[in-house]
Design a protein around this nucleic acid. Structure first.
Lengths: 224, 224
DNA sequence: GCGACACTTCGAGCACGGTCGAAACATTGC
DNA sequence: GCAATGTTTCGACCGTGCTCGAAGTGTCGC
């Protein structure tokens, strides 16, 4: 029996799929709440809470309480580096990943992430909005550009409306490894897409499926 | 549910104590057999074999068959880097390690590692033998010095005796993070220590306990 | 060939840990 | 104060996977 640091303890914390998903979600750098992490991991709130307390006890997370919101984040760059290293090995040894089925393909294109859109479409949208300087991205932070108010009010979205949550936030999209738009603006855009019936949510899934016409509308407005 | 590489799968492979011990043992760089790894991990041979096939399937190990010996080694530097990263986090977050009890203290001083001596005494012995140029250490490899034959034959150990296993081998000692002496010479020295009754093996443990007189003899011969 | 050795596979037992619903707790807003 | 919201704790269920003894497979030495 070897001695030394208890590496099995740490590795087994990462070794549960739900916890691994949570940690991957937190690799984006932004702290998330228990509810958001439960959604990301695909488990119920009590289960997520249990996992989070284990990760806390293991020293892998930090907790910032703000009123009734509790934001969980990675404990530090060392932990992030470890996740990176594990991800690298998983990528290297696991190109034998199961071929994505039709449902997974839909998820890859567009899906709900908490209350906003994720997937290839969402990543393309954010890229285009930044290109057009509607939004400004410095590093990890996203801010409104000068034309943002006019641009979004034309769509019936009031970006000036004060909200407790940040208006814009970057959210790392694992399927394409790029950020997409979160925050109240991201939520408002998803609302718009669903309200206009450009797309509908797949039942019992996070996939978002665009209708042919809806896709054209979406691309005209956001990717044009 | 996030997509991307299956990091939980890899992490859970490392997350079992037996497998973690095996991987730590292999961090020394030398490939080991299933029996040696079973001893290191403190599990039976069937259990070890099962773990090894899982690690193989997960792509974390390579296997070199040589006759009826099968040497397992880490699959590559990327895997080693991952173990390093996990070890680093475990060290950082886990200084709350349980205080070693009396039995653990004995293990730390001297214990059996397969068929040779490990622990602080063994590390000190190798250091001294290298200082006196009885053994020569380049990097990870250990060779016999010119005075080795004379030195050991005085102790009744024939280093010229041909053996299938290498005469000298470095074996990483986790409790002190330094190498100690393995191979047939390491085995012969342990035999000598036990035959001369300088020390005895603790029952149901790998600890080796020196008698006061035996310790003096050992230190005179190997640390003098 | 045969025995000895190194290792793997099989089968069954068992415990740990993940899971969720319901309920308790905490904080905010009215 | 009370209702609404976000989160944790409790209790019970259930499955995965770790474990070992015994038997089977393959390789070496004589």
């Amino acid at each position: 029996m070897r001695e030394g640091p208890d590496i099995a303890r740490i590795a087994s914390l990462v070794g549960d799929p739900a916890r691994a998903n949570m940690l991957s979600a937190l690799m984006g750098g932004t702290a998330l709440t228990a509810s958001e992490l439960a959604l990301e991991a695909g488990v119920s709130l009590p289960t997520a809470s249990s996992h989070l307390s284990k990760l806390m006890e293991g020293g892998l997370l930090t907790l910032a309480s703000q009123g009734r919101h509790r934001y969980y984040g990675l404990a530090g760059p060392q932990v992030a580096g470890m996740i990176e290293a594990i991800t690298g090995v998983a990528e290297a040894v696991g190109p034998k990943r199961v071929r994505p089925g039709p449902r997974d393909a839909a998820m890859r294109v567009a899906r709900v992430c908490y209350d906003h859109l994720a997937g290839e479409q969402a990543v393309a949208m954010l890229d285009r909005l930044v290109d057009r300087k509607v939004l400004l991205r410095d590093d990890k932070e996203i801010r409104l550009g000068h034309s943002a108010a006019a641009h979004f009010s034309a769509l019936g979205i009031d970006v000036e409306a004060k909200a407790r949550r940040p208006v814009c936030r970057a959210c790392l999209d694992w399927s394409v490894r790029r950020s997409h738009l979160a925050g109240t603006l991201g939520a408002a855009i998803l609302d718009k897409i669903l309200a206009e019936k450009w797309a509908r949510r797949e039942k019992d899934s996070r996939a978002v499926v665009f209708s042919p016409g809806g896709r054209r509308q979406f691309e005209r407005v956001f990717l044009g």
